[in-house]
């Protein structure tokens, strides 16, 4: 099977010329379909930069970066926008739109698919919210939801389009341990049901056990640590 993520010889630096500061050095990484990979490492090790490159949010500078069959080195702006719509994002902050209800926030992702009818979008958004346990909060605005509930809406928004790849940046950072646990288990379950691949950046030791593979990053370089000691899914 083709890997969902295939990175070879990736280098990235901030700044220009003599002031250029390397943040990613010779990254090689392949992630297979259905894999759940956790990326850990200290602050400033380059995790977020790697994630944003994979998500098509930054332009790649050197090396090869192939995501869902799209080569990102030298990709056009249009290709990047198209790729982003095929990836599910979960942010550290929930980043929901305050003016929209939970259901409307989720359907913002569905609106990018013109083939879906209004009714289909409602059905899919509502079903997805029910799947994350918020069937009774469909018409609530973010102001009236708890932190864990907001993050669950954000997960519903990321998963409702059934993406083949989910990128999550510290999704549990703003949550207490119980809701953090619930959120990752939810991601794990939905990923299994939809057969998607997850790359999760986290500092949170309590959730490492959900991963098939844990990768450690330091000073812009990947250090492989193999599978977690805890039970694998």
């Amino acid at each position: 099977m083709e890997p969902v993520v295939n990175i070879q010889g990736l280098h990235h630096a901030f700044g220009k010329g003599a002031l250029a500061k390397p943040v990613l050095i010779d990254i090689n990484l392949a992630i297979q379909p259905g894999e759940i990979v956790i990326l850990t490492g200290p602050s400033g090790s380059g995790k977020t930069t790697l994630l944003s490159l994979m998500g098509g949010l930054r332009s790649a500078q050197q090396g090869s970066l192939n995501i869902l069959g799209q080569e990102l080195l030298g990709a056009s702006k249009k290709q990047l926008v198209e790729l982003r719509s095929r990836i599910g994002y979960i942010f550290q902050a929930h980043n929901l739109l305050d003016c929209l209800t939970a259901q409307e926030n989720v359907r913002m992702a569905l609106r990018l698919q013109p083939t879906l009818s209004y009714g289909d979008r409602t059905a899919q958004a509502t079903a997805m919210l029910a799947a994350v346990g918020l069937g009774h909060r469909v018409n609530y605005r973010p102001d009236n939801l708890s932190g864990g509930q907001k993050q669950r809406v954000a997960i519903a928004r990321a998963l409702v389009t059934q993406p083949k790849l989910i990128l999550a940046d510290e999704p549990t950072a703003a949550l207490d341990s119980q809701s953090g646990r619930e959120v990752v288990q939810l991601m794990q379950r939905l990923a299994r049901e939809q057969g998607c691949t997850i790359l999760l950046v986290t500092h949170d030791n309590r959730i490492l056990d959900i991963a098939h593979r844990i990768i450690h990053m330091e000073d812009g370089q990947l250090l492989r640590t193999g599978s977690p000691t805890a039970a694998v899914v």
Partner: peptide, 15 residues
Amino acid sequence: DHLSEYATLKAIGYS
């Protein structure tokens, strides 16, 4: 005020 919301929309595929 909504800059981060707009950035989020960009990130999920809005042009």
